[in-house]
Design a protein around this nucleic acid. Sequence first.
DNA 1: CCTGTGTCATGAAACGGTTCATAATGTAGC
DNA 2: GCTACATTATGAACCGTTTCATGACACAGG
Lengths: 341, 341
Amino acid sequence: MTQPTAHRRASIADVARAAGVSVGTVSNVLNRPERVLPGTRERVEAAIEDLSFVRNGSARQLRAGTITTIGAIVLDIANPFFTDVARGIEERLDRDDFTLMVASSDDDPDREQRYLRLFEEHGVQGVMVVPATNDIEHLLAVRRRGTGVVLLDRPSSDPSISSVAVDDVRGGELAAGHLLDEGHTRIVFLNGPHTIRQCADRHEGVLKALVAAGLDPASALLEVTVTSLNAEGGEAAIRGLLESGDRPTAVFCVNDLVALGVLRTLRTENIAVPTDMAVVGYDDVSFAAELSTPLTSVRQPTHELGVRAADLLLSGTDAAAEHVMFQPTLVVRGSSSSSAT
Amino acid sequence: MTQPTAHRRASIADVARAAGVSVGTVSNVLNRPERVLPGTRERVEAAIEDLSFVRNGSARQLRAGTITTIGAIVLDIANPFFTDVARGIEERLDRDDFTLMVASSDDDPDREQRYLRLFEEHGVQGVMVVPATNDIEHLLAVRRRGTGVVLLDRPSSDPSISSVAVDDVRGGELAAGHLLDEGHTRIVFLNGPHTIRQCADRHEGVLKALVAAGLDPASALLEVTVTSLNAEGGEAAIRGLLESGDRPTAVFCVNDLVALGVLRTLRTENIAVPTDMAVVGYDDVSFAAELSTPLTSVRQPTHELGVRAADLLLSGTDAAAEHVMFQPTLVVRGSSSSSAT
DNA sequence: CCTGTGTCATGAAACGGTTCATAATGTAGC
DNA sequence: GCTACATTATGAACCGTTTCATGACACAGG
């Protein structure tokens, strides 16, 4: 039976000793069993079982160099948008027997750095990052050192780094354009910090739509920065707005979680949607259509986004980087238009 | 400036050579800078910068042994329940400067094994697992070999493994009891496979409620196994049911995503909720209250669950394992009771 | 009998860090 | 001037694998 040594994990040398063979042979059993005589192999396997030996991944990797893992760093692991993307990544990686580790930066550049370093130090084949800041110098450095990097949900400004993104300027334009079409002349945009590129881009799209409609952004747009990009953030922001007495007729939210917080608040405050206030979200998460007031939202091809990103990382030789840009679409529902389904 | 060697990553020896010091000194700069004379330190730091040196985590770990990372394996990374738990874990780990890596087993025991092994081989301090099967022998083995293990969302049957769970029997009982109270005499339970402990437990709870009400489970309960525990699974299951002509008056879904799929389908099929069919979910995810028919659901303290799990893992010396069991609560909303808010 | 060939097993080098006993140097006290 | 002691730097040993040149052995062919 197993004797729980409890002290030091069994090493390959222990196994070799127990089986009466050399370490090289044990290694061969582990990695190229066909090169070992069945009898010997069985003896070694018995010893492995007996000592409940587990390979030391660090040593293995130190010597062998490579590893079939890739890391992903997203802004918020609790946001369905990112987890849907992650599922796409997983699906693609599975085909090549790669494994995925996900970490969440929580919009914090320091945390992003920490995880990035962790992944790099542990020699992952590549990382996919949704950068928390506009500055991607640190990612370029990682790339230069030989680790694959793909920017997720964010166009790359650098030719050496691949990216898979959705046109956020267009997305912002679609959302704002729709609200303007619905007759609104002033829009409140609950946005995240512009250090997050997606936020900056969507803002730019909103401006474009306003200008196209002949409106002056200075008066027709109020951008409010939410503290955190989730339902709580949305709730806090809209509450602040209502308390200030500035009740807009149209609110565009940087994502559906924020929109969820807004809808929740408006309901408790008895403000009718869309008649008193129109709401548009972003991401078209799975539940958007099923909300009490079905949420108009900008849809992004999440799954496809993940698949393509993984594609780029896996096939990504040292060839030129690729930049994939998907187009978002607007899904109009009851939260912004009384004539919608 | 940096010269992109592009070939081999710089090692500590390269840095030492460039700075004209020994490898030991470089290591000291990295780990105990206060022991190095400022002048020397600066020289080394310059060399590090210049060669864009990154520590080799494998080598470091091989020698130093320990690492401040813990791994989590959940059933489905796209399920808000698990990501909310993950956030709780992260929050707690952050306090001790630990990092979290998340992987998703997708209910597949093989994938669970693969990730478990990966984590163990790389020497994480501990793993938190939501097991995909009833058999936790492999987890016991991991524990025996010295890696911390905490069962997530699942009571432990073994004294050597800590667990943090919510009483799923009670949860099932609450849900079914409520439907019976509402006057239903037959319940359809869209459940996952019983190999997942939570599913088996919730089923047991449903049985308990039926028996307590003096009903015969054989006729009063129809358990349908959904193919996947998400909205698509729920949609497929309820569609199958409707097509078979067996239209129940009450449906209990094993989680809110499944319930979302059910609600979505019922809406397109013009079946009124709760009058024609009552629906109860599980998890009380963030959007449950905001659905077109607000979803009655069994609430679990997700965040707290994660925090406690991380607590156990971090404080978890070799002392006896702890078993934390939270109690779920039922949140009644419009999807199951016309008198609800 | 000798050579050639093929199959298995061996053992030491190498991977890139950390650690620790030791050396080198400087400073203080007497 | 000598000892005692603190401060810094050194370099070799070590962590647990993989890899590869080498050896041992068996067998076939001439």
